[in-house]
């Protein structure tokens, strides 16, 4: 499966709860997916030899209130295990929500993961919104 195939199949897909996807591959070879339940924070999908990675960039460290960085990191470490299917991480200066799937994952499962990741994004951001500028 290539990212182009995945984009095509996600665009055709409609979930049980009516969730749909807008997916396209960018010039840089990243699959950008907008889930209908959260169109503000697109999910960036990419792959390695073994995994499909789904990444939602959340915010930059510069957007955290200056004296709240430690509190935020602490909150994220504590919250991360409670977030279903996604983990929270720091990539460079950007906080990310991400998931990893085996390349052999079925489309229905990929769609479910992406749908949950989109929901998680809103939940996680709501939880720490008060720590952001």
């Amino acid at each position: 499966m290539t990212l182009d195939d995945l984009a095509f199949r996600l665009n055709e897909y409609s979930g049980d709860e009516g969730t749909t996807f807008d997916a396209f591959v960018t010039e840089r070879g990243i699959l950008e997916v907008v889930c209908s339940n959260d169109d503000e924070f697109p999910i960036h999908v990419t792959m390695t030899e073994t995994q499909l990675l789904s990444v939602t960039p959340l915010f930059s460290t510069s957007e955290v209130l200056p004296d709240k960085l430690h509190e935020l990191n602490d909150a994220f470490l504590r919250l991360s295990p409670a977030v279903p299917l996604s983990s929270i991480g720091l990539q460079g200066d950007t906080y990310i929500l991400f998931g990893a799937m085996a390349l052999s994952t079925r489309l229905e499962v990929i769609a479910h993961e992406l749908e949950v990741q989109a929901e998680n994004t809103i939940d996680v951001l709501e939880a720490v919104e008060h720590l952001l500028a």
Binding site: H44, T46, M47, F59, S60, E63, T94
Partner: peptide
Amino acid sequence: QELQRATESVSKNFAATGSSGHRVS
């Protein structure tokens, strides 16, 4: 490396829009 690639374009946007404040809110 892939996480870097997947995050890069957006984080540049954060830098541009972040200055306006309350972007996430």
